[in-house]
Design a protein around this nucleic acid. Structure first.
Lengths: 125, 125
DNA sequence: TATAAAATGATAATTGTTACTACTTTTAGG
DNA sequence: CCTAAAAGTAGTAACAATTATCATTTTATA
């Protein structure tokens, strides 16, 4: 990864913003430092930086929503390879909400746990 | 909620598909039973059914991705009201990956926990 | 400093989802 | 039953977030 002034500004701006900004919000902030930085550059760099593990991209699943007829509490595993979503028993963390609620002042209504990795099927190829 | 044949087909089709289909995949399956059911109807019904708690919509965050310069393991809380994202210490579930890994055959690489609810600021309004 | 690789800005294209509109079904009450 | 109001639908336009394209510029290095 070569150096670029734009990337430096983007990273610096992200570090200043504690609130997990969206790309659009970041773009506004970044433009205050250099109005010529384009949205494409921003996305390109955010993805690259996330790829290298320098920053983290927060988005439970990829682009599109999935729907589930099983409303019983359970978690999910998404295969990076085939994109399939599998169920995981919620027993892996029985009192996660209670525990978290006792540590924060927020009113927690629900939660979602998403694991990512490689599923068996794809592993054996 | 009034009865509709379309909704019945959609729900039935969702129940037959264990793999947490996307809306698009579902639309294909639904069209096999009734080719006239439109994508808009599908989305409308999926959202309604999720609203009523009859099915579950899986999507970590809302529309857009958020970015995080803090790569240290931690979780997130999203306020339904203002949409802001807050950090939550990962200590609420210290050995979540290990525990889950021991119970499945998947190769887990990472995980994300997202709580939703109302933040203090919005609660006090 | 010449050159190949990497990065950029501007904008077009794509994708997933929602809004809109005119039309059809469903549901209660007379 | 019949009928009007409410709820639902198909089809398509609109939208928002993101990615692809491409001609130009910047960076690293031989």
């Amino acid at each position: 990864m070569n150096y670029s002034r734009q990337r430096e500004i983007i990273l610096e701006t992200l570090t200043e913003n504690v609130v997990h900004p969206t790309a659009e919000y970041l773009h506004d902030k970044v433009k205050e430092k250099d109005p010529k930085i384009s949205l494409a550059t921003l996305y390109r760099n955010l993805n690259q930086l996330a790829e290298k593990g320098i920053i983290k991209k927060i988005d439970g699943l990829e682009a599109s929503s999935h729907f589930d007829h099983n409303t019983f509490k359970h978690y999910h595993f998404i295969c990076k390879e085939c994109g399939k979503v599998f169920d995981i028993s919620a027993e892996v963390a029985p009192d996660l909400i209670e525990k978290t609620q006792s540590l924060t002042d927020f009113t927690i209504e629900s939660h979602d746990v998403v694991f990512t990795g490689i599923c068996n099927n794809c592993k054996n190829k």
